[in-house]
């Protein structure tokens, strides 16, 4: 498949996630949108890895593994991030009884 298709698909998914971040007020949904953006990037990394592999196949049989391993590490980091992030959201809910980021305007002060 042409790499362009993957590129534009990833961009579309990424932008959908971004619009979600900008337009929603629920902290959990914003969080999920961020996960979607990460996944869009993951998809693109895998696509590029395969592109690279196809291009340099003659030189090295295992070329392109780096990209896929990056995806793996991104998943690792995402998992850790989600665990901490959800803990923060739970604590926030416990304190203000809402997950609405509109109330998180302490940055103003």
């Amino acid at each position: 498949m042409p790499i362009n298709y993957y590129l534009f698909l990833s961009l579309a998914l990424f932008t959908i996630g971004m619009v979600g971040v900008l337009t929603r007020r629920n902290a959990i949904i914003i969080f999920m949108c961020i996960e979607l953006m990460l996944n869009a990037v993951n998809l693109l990394l895998v696509a590029f890895s395969k592109m690279h592999h196809l291009k340099n196949l003659a030189l090295n049989a295992s070329v392109g593994t780096d990209g896929q391993l990056f995806v793996f590490f991104i998943m690792v980091v995402a998992a850790a991030e989600v665990s901490v992030g959800l803990a923060i959201i739970v604590m926030m809910y416990r304190n203000i009884h809402s997950v609405d980021i509109q109330f998180l305007n302490r940055l103003k002060h």
Partner: peptide
């Protein structure tokens, strides 16, 4: 502009 709303800041960032 300094609304304190994280959403707004993200918007400006974009």
């Amino acid at each position: 502009l300094q609304s304190g709303q994280t959403g707004n800041y993200a918007l400006w960032m974009v």
